[in-house]
Write a protein that binds this DNA or RNA. Structure first.
Lengths: 146, 146
DNA sequence: ATGAGTGCAAAGTGTTTGCAACTAT
DNA sequence: ATAGTTGCAAACACTTTGCACTCAT
């Protein structure tokens, strides 16, 4: 796997934190471990639920800190919710969410590369395609609706 | 223009409403007129502010009704906010929002057509590209940051 | 007349913040 | 020792909802 063992990641996070004048705490370790043991994307609420003794606000703060250090990435989904995941855990990829059932699908990372180039050339807009989930209707829901 | 005069649109909305067993009310007319007289995308709050005597909740309800009738479209932006506009007002287009300054840029409607085809073929996912704003950093903010 | 629509106030999400107590360094 | 972190509660932004009243039809 690309992520190494859980202990590896925890150790790397600890090192990065201290390197930055920050501290490795039980809350931050718990958040990392939750993200590590979950396959996909999680909402802050899911993380808080899985890290039972860590307060919601500390979960948000830990996720923010870990994002700043480059370990965590978040995606904005529809309806104002946000999903988080370890960057090392799954590799670079984009997201699409079904408008009907809410399922989040992973898409190949380079899917929007051509579009990104075009936006860059024509508008000087630097696309961060992973940062929002594309929206649409998934195959299951299309079938179900028919 | 593609939209005809404001009166045209108001009349079409009234007809569509009655056709549907719904009613044309002062609130709904006010919301349509606000959207008609504004160039770009508006948040529900901006609509409420511009339609001074219409209550916020009625603005939301009117926007929902008008969406159902196919006159209004909304885009999800970052941070859980939503922008609305008349479909007839500007023609089909996509949106990109600068992560740094929040500005929303209009993009050519067909920009993601190739991607949409690919998603459809490979996953059966039917992309609705206009429904969320792409995210990134605009030229101004890139310059400013450098 | 009568049911759809409105204003209001209250509840509901998801997220952030001020502050005193706590703890990793 | 001492600054970074936490838990808590309260505030936030945005949106939805229950209800009695009003108004378009």
């Amino acid at each position: 796997m690309t992520a190494g063992t859980g202990n590896d990641v925890v150790a790397k996070v600890a090192a990065a934190l201290r390197n930055n004048g920050d501290r490795m705490t039980a809350s931050r370790r718990a958040v990392v471990e939750v993200l590590l043991h979950e396959p996909g994307h999680m909402s802050a609420e899911q993380v808080a639920a899985a890290a039972a003794h860590v307060h919601r606000s500390s979960v948000y703060r830990a996720l923010e800190t870990l994002t700043g250090l480059g370990f965590v990435q978040h995606v904005h989904l529809g309806h104002g919710s946000t999903a988080y995941h370890l960057i090392s855990h799954t590799g670079p990829h984009l997201h699409a969410q079904c408008r009907s059932c809410g399922t989040v699908y992973d898409l190949p990372g380079p899917l929007l590369d051509a579009v990104a180039r075009r936006l860059d050339q024509e508008l000087g807009f630097h696309l961060e395609a992973h940062h929002v989930a594309l929206s649409g209707t998934c195959a299951d829901c299309t079938t179900r609706a028919a």
